[in-house]
Design a protein around this nucleic acid. Structure first.
Length: 132
DNA sequence: TCTCTGACTACAA
DNA sequence: ATTGTAGCCAGAG
């Protein structure tokens, strides 16, 4: 797989993330069949242009711990990401130092990757119910 | 070719 | 909860 195809695959999966949901880099990597390329998923996203068509909801991709990454505190990416997520109804908690996190128990979206050896397509996903 | 870095993840202390 | 270490893989210098 070329890096171009890798990027394309990443964008494709990211676009499949339903609004109001978030997933992790690692899971995107799994979905495209490269579970070890979690870092390069983020790499592909930063390579993304602001005006892609169709648009890629990169803001729905966060760390596996629910932590929003976007380059150090000096960058604005994190701010844009938080704004975009809240606009979709995702609750983003912000700490004192600007640490932004999302509750994966509520907004996490982790469908099972499509196994090549599997025959029946399974559009199933864990509808985890929130429990305060 | 080697070394370092990175929008990562998982595990140990 | 926080910090450190290790594994990971591709790109840049």
């Amino acid at each position: 797989m070329d890096s171009g195809e890798f990027h394309a695959a990443v964008y494709e999966k990211v676009r499949e993330i339903p609004p109001g949901r978030v997933t992790s880099y690692g899971h995107i990597a799994k979905l495209i069949g490269m579970p070890r390329h979690s870092r390069h998923v983020g790499q592909a996203l930063k390579f993304l242009s602001p005006q892609t068509n169709p648009p890629v909801p990169w803001q729905r991709v966060i760390g596996a711990s629910g932590a929003v990454s976007s380059r150090g505190p000096g960058t604005d990416g994190a701010q844009r990401q938080r704004d975009a997520l809240e606009a979709e109804g995702v609750e983003v908690t912000t700490g004192r130092t600007g640490e932004m996190r999302v509750d994966l128990a509520q907004y996490g979206w982790f469908p099972a990757p499509a196994p090549a050896a599997a025959r029946g397509d399974e559009e199933d996903e864990e509808e985890e119910d929130q429990a305060e």
